[in-house]
């Protein structure tokens, strides 16, 4: 599973992307975020304000209950500020 981080979520985690193989209990975006937050203080800090973290699976916006699987591209980012 490919994870991408943008804006201050990238700054706080310290990397822009990584390849991960989450444990079996990670079946949704929500459980993926729970698992990520347990991987270290930088992840915990980046995901502290969980309500503002936007998620996309394979480049489409999704809710926390959306399923994830190996091979997915999952992106985590704050609310967008373009335009």
């Amino acid at each position: 599973m490919k994870l991408l981080y943008f804006a201050w979520i990238r700054s706080k985690i310290g990397i822009a992307e990584e390849e991960v193989a989450p444990p079996a209990e990670v079946t949704t975006v929500g459980t993926l975020l729970d698992w990520l937050a347990s991987r270290g203080p930088n992840y915990a800090e980046a995901l502290k304000a969980r309500a503002v973290v936007k998620t996309a699976v394979n480049q489409e916006y999704v809710d926390p209950d959306h399923p994830v699987q190996l091979g997915d591209e999952v992106a985590l980012f704050p609310p967008v500020t373009g335009g």
């Binding site: 943008f6 804006a7 996309a56 980012f77 609310p79 967008v80 500020t81 373009g82 335009g83």
Partner: peptide
Amino acid sequence: IDWLKTKAPFWKMEDGTAGAHWVEA
């Protein structure tokens, strides 16, 4: 433009005199 501002994945980082910061939505 209204939809673009809330859906297109862009993020602004401003470099001010007090250092760089991410613009809040």
